[in-house]
């Protein structure tokens, strides 16, 4: 579904420039939920910019469904960390979700259905006419997720999407995302710096070290559906947690 091989990204010249991504290779399977864990400055965001086609790679290859990425791929949607800047303040919630759909070739009717469906999925079916700035932070990020869903991507890239909401909202959003992942049968690459979040959500966790190189891969065999209380109380959860923590530290 998503294949990254020997991805390298250097800002500036190869000799004197800043190496943001060294030599990154990994494969994400169909409908897999992969979390990429790394501390800030390890090159996560640069990696995502390359995957989403926003920035060209210096060398290496990225394949989305077998076709190489040389610009933003149609089958991929990107959810930014900074939802308040990613949502457009001059558009209502509904318009924010629907405006990209026309450029994907959806008819007016299809776009309308996709928009209503996605907003229902994130529980905002009743706030369609509001403006984003009239909503709380958690609700705004749900709008951004709805926009990505309505786009009907095969792959969803998420850059620390819940990093700037409070803890309670965060765990609600995690559960919402797991529900959406199953319902929309989408492949998710989720970047975070939070170990608990990574283990709770993922099928597989990749640990990234600067300059964006995979140092550890952990398979998460926790049963689904997961639950904030019982899943996190499992001994396996605690084991993975400490394994990843030591991987991050070394």
């Amino acid at each position: 579904m998503l294949e990254v091989s020997h991805l390298r990204k250097v800002y500036g010249s190869e000799e004197t420039g800043n190496v943001a991504v060294g030599d990154l290779s990994f494969v994400v399977g169909e409908k897999e939920f992969v979390c990429i864990l790394g501390s800030s400055g390890c090159g996560k965001t640069t990696m995502l910019r390359c995957l989403s086609g926003l920035a060209p790679a210096t060398s290496g290859q990225i394949l989305v469904e077998g076709s190489p990425v040389d610009g933003p791929p149609e089958d991929l949607a990107y959810v930014f960390q900074d939802y308040s800047r990613s949502l457009l303040p001059w558009m209502t919630v509904e318009r924010n979700v629907s405006f990209p759909l026309r450029y994907k070739g959806m008819s007016k009717q299809e776009a309308k259905i996709a928009t209503a469906d996605a907003l229902d999925a994130v529980g905002l079916g009743d706030r369609t006419k509001a403006f984003p700035w009239q909503l709380s932070g958690g609700m705004q990020q749900r709008v951004a997720i709805a926009r990505a869903l309505a786009y009907r991507p095969r792959v969803l890239l998420m850059d620390e999407p819940f990093a700037s909401v409070d803890a309670q909202t965060r765990s609600d959003l995690e559960d919402l995302l797991l529900g959406i992942w199953e319902r929309y049968a989408v492949t998710i690459v989720f970047v975070t710096h939070d170990i608990d979040e990574a283990v709770y959500l993922a099928d597989r966790v990749l640990v990234l070290k600067a300059p964006a190189t995979v140092t550890t891969v952990a398979d998460v065999d926790l049963p689904r559906p997961r639950d904030q209380i019982t899943t996190k109380a499992l001994p396996e959860f605690a084991r993975l947690r400490s394994e990843l923590l030591s991987a991050l530290r070394h």
């Binding site: 989403s52 149609e74 930014f80 800047r85 990613s86 990209p100």
Partner: peptide, 13 residues
């Protein structure tokens, strides 16, 4: 806003 620009670009506008 560069994030708004990126958003539009990532959705293929």
């Amino acid at each position: 806003d560069p994030v708004a620009r990126d958003t539009a670009r990532s959705y293929g506008l």
